[in-house]
């Protein structure tokens, strides 16, 4: 069994990952703090039952469940994603932005992306966050969410397309042409 110090160290190492997942799932800084706190407390209470090589998966699964519980409990979708939401990401990205106007546009686009991401239904949202934002492999995601590998792939691909569709209406994203039009297409410019 891990000592209290070892658990404390583990929690300290994983808290940023947990918080990031919670934030992009819930779309609220305050809710993300609550979810992170609940998740880490649950881990502390159950650490003796979690094998050392399963800690990350356990935390991902628990964070997702805690976030979904919060959403259900508060009877709202993460649509409150708004000014508050982009504050954290603005702070995190401010240093890398090239200039004030670019930063403003970039921040708005990012906020739009975050909002649309948070509006996605499960499991698309969690899969996109875990794969694209947190850089987990398909195997890690399948293991963490206890889903078959093929399901992870299918949901992720569908999630990307759903997000693309939702972003098409966004003023900061260039529209994508309707793809499946029942007609023959003549192309001029060729890429690839």
């Amino acid at each position: 069994m891990a000592s209290s110090q070892a658990i404390d160290r583990q929690i300290d190492q994983q808290r940023h990952r947990v918080f990031t997942l919670a934030y992009y799932t819930l779309g609220s800084h305050q809710d993300a703090e609550d979810a992170t706190q609940e998740t880490l407390l649950r881990y502390w209470r159950n650490a003796s039952r979690v094998a050392p090589d399963r800690v990350e998966g356990w935390l991902v699964r628990t964070t997702t469940n805690v976030c979904l519980d919060l959403i259900r409990k508060r009877k709202r979708s993460p649509e409150t994603f708004g000014n508050e939401a982009s504050e954290a990401t603005l702070q995190a990205a401010a240093s890398s932005s090239p200039g004030p106007s670019d930063r403003a546009v970039s921040a708005e686009s990012r906020q739009q992306l975050e909002r649309k991401l948070a509006e996605l239904k499960e499991p698309f949202r969690s899969l996109l966050i875990l794969r694209e934002v947190q850089g987990m492999t398909y195997d890690q995601i399948a293991d963490a969410l206890e889903l078959p590998l093929t399901s992870v792939r299918v949901y992720l691909h569908r999630g990307r397309r759903l997000l693309a569709q939702q972003l098409e209406a966004s003023p900061h994203c260039s529209p994508t042409p309707e793809h499946h039009t029942p007609k023959k297409i003549s192309t001029g410019g060729v890429r690839r």
Partner: peptide, 14 residues
């Protein structure tokens, strides 16, 4: 999505 920042969990949470 890949460019979205990894966030820092506030110390008050821990």
């Amino acid at each position: 999505l890949h460019a979205l920042p990894q966030l820092t969990c506030p110390d008050r949470v821990i």
